[in-house]
Design a protein around this nucleic acid. Structure first.
Lengths: 334, 334
DNA sequence: TTAATCAACTAAACCGGTTTAGTAAATTTA
DNA sequence: TAAATTTACTAAACCGGTTTAGTTGATTAA
């Protein structure tokens, strides 16, 4: 494609490669005005475009970072990526996206691929199954910033929503509406702080309002097998007046179940979801949710990463981004 | 980061750089078993990882392509990108995403950035305002594949939904439900074939069923100023029994208007949209839509691009991907 | 007047690989 | 038995830049 290179410019201007390079990097220390002008003219005449790859080879930098997400297609992930990308582009970096589809092995392969590609750093929403492996890369000197998922016991750079406060606020909102039997639906904690924190926010709100914590109202859902106990059974057996779902897919599946069983939201049961629901305004019942700020998370994550890259430090930072409660129509006042 | 290089491996194995390189590239032509074994051992011992950048420098290839979209966050774009990325990764390429936010200038800058980065090719949903410029890059030898938007008169590689057939089928579906006054809501054609084709599909369906084409029922919408005529006015003045919107934002805005004006879909007026609507199943009225296959479009676009890169040809190909009608509840039988 | 300094460059090494053109020893052919 | 060929490598050029260590002629200080 672009064939004219530095040596061509140098020859055209009648100077050496070194001088041409100095000029292009703005170091005019001891360079006569005429020489500068000749090189400028040569660049213009030959339509020269420096090759950033050759440049970075020498610098042993790629000006590229990696972003490892579950699926770029998701509402949350795509916005994080957009934030990362906007910040990176502004700082002269490019971002390479790797999708893991929730598979820890694909995740491991992605990190290795990025390592081999010599990216300057990585932003990752890790599954939590590769903690050891990731530590290894950090030791090898690859700066890594996490987001979305915080695993227990790992000191790391991470940007997170303030899950605990968000869950607390949401639960308190339901309590203030008169709810006492609030069913908390979560994925298995599995040492993931990001899940435990929400639970704690929930528990603390109950405690603050002297509502006993009923273990029957803490229900599990997982990606493969769905609800451990069917929502209809939960309602029959434990009579919750509200569901508080901790993840968009849980909200979606719960809503689907309730619709199928002809259980009306919010008349029969209230529903509050974690994570924004796209197109909520057009829903039969617009869902009240805890809204995260994925775009901001992306910005902050890349800010932190590029900072670490620049300073070659790796002191663990944890940054919390506040959430907000988006009140719509799925929670009834009792 | 990774510091061990080829020369280290070579020294460790007691061979020259060249021999080590030959080994790593699987050319064992005249290499003794013992030498092979020694290099293999050195690689393993030193944990050597080849530097793809240095490799590609010599090859004058980057094994990277660019993808220029409006906004990675969108339902359609994110899926196209996912398709592109899956195909590219499988073929050893990486994709760099550039967002234009519908701004032709940002688009131009993105292409130039990708050109300077020496990407091996570009996949783009162009605004249509940079046709000249893009031709320039093609002439410079940069392979380009378009998708989503086809501009009038430009011979180019392009992957598209079969817009005409899709619009024909959708219109005929409405006609078969008894609709005769179908309001076609579109962006200004502006020489964009992707829009004109839909209009032709619409017109041909009407014609086939002997329904006169009423210009009053062809309405404009644009991103900045919204509807040229407010939907309520359209209904009052021209009494359509159905709307057929040509773009997701139009569908969304129309629905919003109708809701605000308390006009019921489909009781007062039917609605059929182009483009899938996320979460449609939970809508007050699930919207019937023409569903495109963005993931397939991404796959096909990258297939075509990588093919052109490999063969260094650039014969214009146009590939149509069929759409399907996703029938839900927003169209009433009259 | 001569050594030291400075302005304005350039040669060559380097980044980390690939590839082409050789080379020396062993083997085959004439 | 000498020439031609084959085997198993290596030296050096190259990809397209950056950077370090010089070099040369002019100017300034001692």
């Amino acid at each position: 494609m672009a064939k004219v290179k530095l040596i061509d410019v140098a020859r055209f201007a009648g100077v050496s490669k070194s001088t041409a390079s100095q000029f292009l990097n703005g170091r005019f220390d001891y360079m006569s005005k005429e020489t500068q002008e000749r090189i400028r003219a040569a660049v213009a005449e030959l339509d020269y475009v420096p090759n950033p790859i050759a440049r970075n080879l020498k610098a042993t930098k790629t000006k590229t970072i990696g972003v490892v997400v579950r699926d770029i297609t998701g509402f949350y992930s795509s916005r994080v990526i957009r934030g990362v990308d906007d910040y990176c582009k502004a700082k002269g970096y490019n971002a390479l996206i790797y999708n893991t589809d929730f598979d820890p092995e694909t995740e491991a392969k992605s990190i290795e691929a990025l390592y081999q590609l010599r990216v300057d750093g990585v932003i990752i929403a890790s599954s939590g199954n590769n903690t050891q492996l990731i530590s290894g890369y950090i030791e090898k000197g690859m700066p890594i910033v996490h987001f979305q998922i915080e695993n227990d016991g790992s000191e790391q750079n991470i940007i997170l929503s303030d899950y605990k406060k968000a869950a607390f606020d949401a639960t308190e909102y339901l309590i203030n509406l008169g709810h006492k039997r609030i069913c908390f639906v979560t994925q298995d904690f599995n040492n993931v702080n990001s899940r435990i924190d929400r639970y704690q926010g929930y528990a603390e709100a109950l405690s603050k309002h002297d509502i006993p914590l009923d273990d029957n109202l803490v229900q599990r859902w997982d990606r493969e097998s769905g609800f451990q106990t069917a929502p209809i059974e939960i309602i029959k057996s434990y009579a919750p007046t509200a569901f508080f779902t901790q993840h968009l897919p849980i909200t979606v599946e719960l809503l689907r179940s309730l619709n199928r069983a002809n259980i009306s939201v919010p008349d029969d049961v209230s529903l509050l979801g974690f994570d924004e629901v796209p197109m909520a305004e057009f829903f039969k019942v617009p869902i009240t949710v805890v809204k995260q700020e994925p775009y901001s998370i992306g910005i902050e994550a890349s800010k932190l990463l590029l900072n670490n890259i620049a300073k070659e430090t790796n002191i663990s930072h944890k940054i919390l981004i506040p959430c907000s409660l988006e009140i719509r129509e799925s929670c009834k006042k009792l």
